[in-house]
Design a binder for these strands. Sequence first.
DNA 1: TAGGTCTACGAAAACGGTTTCGTGTTAATA
DNA 2: TATTAACACGAAACCGTTTTCGTAGACCTA
Lengths: 340, 340
Amino acid sequence: MKKKITLKTIAKELDVSVSTVSKALKNSREISLDTRKKIQAFAQLYNYRPNNIAISLKNRRTKNIGVIIPDIIHHFFTSVFRGIEKYANTKGYNVIVCISDESFDKEVINMELLANGSIDGYIMSLAGETQKKGDYSHLISVVDQGIPLVLFDRVTDQIQCDKITINDEEAGYMATKKLIEGGSKNIALVMNENYLNVDAQRAHGYYRALQEAGLKVDDSMILRLPYQFEDEEKSEWFFKENDIDGLLSVNEVFAIRCMKRLQQLGKRIPEDVAIIGFTNGILSQMANPPLTSVTQYGQRMGKTAAQFLIERVESQLEDTQMPYRTEVIQADILERETTR
Amino acid sequence: MKKKITLKTIAKELDVSVSTVSKALKNSREISLDTRKKIQAFAQLYNYRPNNIAISLKNRRTKNIGVIIPDIIHHFFTSVFRGIEKYANTKGYNVIVCISDESFDKEVINMELLANGSIDGYIMSLAGETQKKGDYSHLISVVDQGIPLVLFDRVTDQIQCDKITINDEEAGYMATKKLIEGGSKNIALVMNENYLNVDAQRAHGYYRALQEAGLKVDDSMILRLPYQFEDEEKSEWFFKENDIDGLLSVNEVFAIRCMKRLQQLGKRIPEDVAIIGFTNGILSQMANPPLTSVTQYGQRMGKTAAQFLIERVESQLEDTQMPYRTEVIQADILERETTR
DNA sequence: TAGGTCTACGAAAACGGTTTCGTGTTAATA
DNA sequence: TATTAACACGAAACCGTTTTCGTAGACCTA
């Protein structure tokens, strides 16, 4: 087992000072070419790698990004994550991931875990519980300390920071309109039973489209489900009770689950019931029939988030002031086989 | 914007030395109760948090785990990751994730990125290219440096380290046997076109079951696909050419894609073709019909991997020698509706 | 009263780098 | 020949902790 080699080792071995070694390895002209060559050769030979932690301590930056997301089962979050990771890596940053599990407490704990200098900034999407509770003190505290924060998807205007969202209201509107244009009149909306700002936005769009088409807006047409969809009875009851011919879901998991249930009840998709779900993930692609869906461009979202964060981190070094930005990524509807 | 508060700040403010502050905050009996109380109160008031980086430097350990996985679209990897993350967090460790994208070069770069002291150890599943190439020098180098490494799923016996696998050969055997018992005689095997040790193992099991049942083993019954399944023609041709009544796939994505293709060709599942896939993920659950699959217990795998790694990391501190362990997690077959 | 033992704290080294500043030697200039 | 500039390097401070060791003063004991 090889011991780790440090500047000190090299210095001792080559009988020069640590500062000389450091400068030589940075190819500083302050050191004679001879000495530089010698030191560089030695370092190469012994495969010297500067200790990142020491550099982090010195520079007071880690080149680590903290990502906190509610879950990793929804394709949307994994694709955003992928976008972040890809971009960050090209910039020499690493990504530390924590999963809040939709829980307020875990979100707080995870932020704490990362707060002590382990990361240069956060990229987050709020936990459901946090949005429900409306308690953002942990975020405020972070922003107060001057730690950069980028919020995506599940954002809040209680916090001043960079944000990336999609045009949820409009997407909800467009999707609903598409269902209406396909001839649907009784359109159900499936959303999370716990409050999420994105769901609320999408619901707005849904309402607007219905009203515009002169269709009745009825709260009984809304099915609210728990994150994991464990509540089988609720949906069973809902679909028996309501005679729907269209369905809009705020995510693809709900959409597919509902589609299966409808199929079990003998409904044909899309002839009897047309369906659109948010998130164009593998589930939507692989579904039978393939699901028409609102593509959220998760990877692009992640990339933009990472870009915003890194720009802000690096702007801090130069002490330049940057205004907070909000980018809205336009969602599209990708038509497949569950709409008419 | 609040400035970060350090031991030095507190020391200056309270007119004591840094060492006194440090000890007082650890509630050392070396410091008088009065002083302790005073310092603790002050720290509390200003919300002092020790700088993790400094502690890492001092302790020469970061409490970070590096995870390198080939992709994040297969449910198997995300579930292993989730297992790692969950367990690691309970032990106060953070997880840094890199994705190798099945590429040798990216795997090497990612390892380098993490090697410089950012992490205490690695948990990895090898990239396809790495297994194909058979070049493990980057891993050997890491092990040589004494950095703990745990390999899961895609392992190799070229490297001496802790390993977690499933009983791939046996699982392949059992799955094939189940298909045979269901009456299938012409059973296709779908695997990655690039060499993967897990695929090879599963194929062994498949052969063994066929031979045992006296069925002919024919290489033309094997469909080899690229990771992303972009090669639509190949599978189309395969299913037109071969009249199969059973199919075993090394992952759920291939399984579902093949099922869709077979359905398009008018085959009924499972009446005409019975299907079993590896990985019991959401895709399998949501498929239509739901896929019978080999459950790999990804979360448990991740948890065990994290446990092995953390145990080894912490054993290093006490200089105790630990033998390398290999844990084989028994895979089960979960019967759903694609088998008879 | 000299010597010993606590108590309560501080100085300093250490972790592994970077960077500023100072200095001895040599060479160039007045 | 005296002055100065350039060169090549080293000492030391610093990032924020932890930890070992040293010690001043109070108190106790023979």
